Amino acid sequence: MSISGMTGFGRAEGAGCGWTWSVEARSVNGRNLEVRFRGPNGFDALERAVRTAAQARFARGQITVGVQARRVEGAEAAVTINAPLLARYLTLANELAEDGATPPSADGLLALRGVIEAPEETDDPEARAALETAIGRTVEEAMDALRGARHAEGAQLAPVLGGFIDRIEALVASAEGEAQAQVEAIRDRFSRRMAELAPDAPGLEERVFLEAASLAAKADVREELDRLSAHVAAARHLMTAPPAGRKLAFLLQEFMREANTLCSKSATTALTGIGLELKAVIEQLREQVQNVE
């Protein structure tokens, strides 16, 4: 498997049960998985299907799913009149008219609450359940399309990340070669300094050797370079074991810690330069890892 990105778009459409609908799913970067749902009134039950579909496919990212649905023209359910309620209203209105009130009008009676029942109020629960199930399948299709878009982004990111990892490996190799010259550089520098301060001091050569050895031990960067090499191997493994974004982000913190120590222990300008370039490449890699799921 390859890594996946966190941005993308997916769309799917469907029709049935006298309705047509469309589903759009969008995703952007996010530290965790966050799902937002927007749908028409009366379809709140779809939110659970959206969250379930997202959790089954994604580990990170801010995902927004929008559902639009409308009845097919000519398929609207017939408007019905609540005849028993209308009869009660009419009886009360006639009684009031006998006492001098204005006789009721047809439009006035039909405007009373509950007399006319809208199609949404008369939907059969089984029909609504079937409709929501059908839309749920379209939600999954849109989520699959979104997942495909995120995988495509990951395919574009993979060679970029791999290039940075290769560059880090090359810099570590250069640092290993330069680190071998640190002991001699420290000895020469310390020897010159001691000769300037005390050229005729007895036992100067032995003192130079001991002090240089002590400084070289403090400046030994082999442990940091070994850990950097191990981190490179771990990063390459994570690139083939998604979701890897969060683990890569933590690993890059360790990369930077070793690079900082390398710079602080450096005794030559060449090794310092390598360390600074190493830190710059690690930071570039970190920026790109923010796009990885």
Rank of each mutant, 00 (worst) to 15 (best):
G5D: 02
G8S: 11
F9D: 00
G10E: 06
G10Y: 08
R11N: 04
A12D: 06
G14V: 07
G16V: 02
G16H: 04
T20M: 06
V23P: 08
S27A: 09
V28K: 03
N29G: 08
N29R: 05
R31Y: 13
R31V: 15
E34W: 13
F37H: 09
R38N: 02
R38H: 06
L46M: 11
R48K: 14
A49P: 03
A49M: 10
R51P: 09
R57P: 07
F58G: 04
Q62V: 12
T64H: 02
V65C: 07
G66E: 09
V67S: 05
R70A: 13
V72Y: 11
A77R: 09
A78E: 10
A83Q: 15
L86D: 12
R88F: 06
R88D: 14
T91C: 13
N94D: 14
E95I: 11
A97P: 10
G100P: 04
P104K: 02
A111T: 12
L112P: 02
L112Y: 10
R113I: 14
P125G: 04
P125S: 07
E126D: 10
E126W: 14
A127H: 07
A127N: 03
A130W: 03
T133C: 08
A134L: 10
R137L: 07
R137M: 11
L146W: 10
L146A: 03
R150S: 15
G154E: 12
Q156H: 05
A158D: 09
I165W: 02
R167E: 10
R167S: 10
S174H: 12
E176V: 00
E176L: 02
G177L: 14
G177H: 14
E178T: 04
A179M: 04
I186P: 03
R189T: 09
M194E: 04
P199E: 05
P199T: 12
D200N: 01
A201L: 07
G203K: 06
E205S: 06
E211Y: 08
E211M: 02
A213I: 09
A216F: 05
A216S: 07
A216K: 03
A219T: 08
D220P: 08
R222W: 11
R222H: 15
E223Q: 15
L225S: 02
L228Y: 07
A233E: 00
A234K: 14
H237T: 13
M239D: 01
T240H: 05
A241N: 11
P242K: 14
R246A: 14
K247E: 13
A249E: 15
F250D: 09
L251Q: 01
L252K: 13
E254L: 04
M256F: 15
M256G: 15
E258H: 07
A259L: 12
N260K: 05
T261Q: 14
K265T: 00
S266I: 01
A267H: 05
T268L: 01
A270R: 15
T272W: 07
K279C: 02
V289L: 13
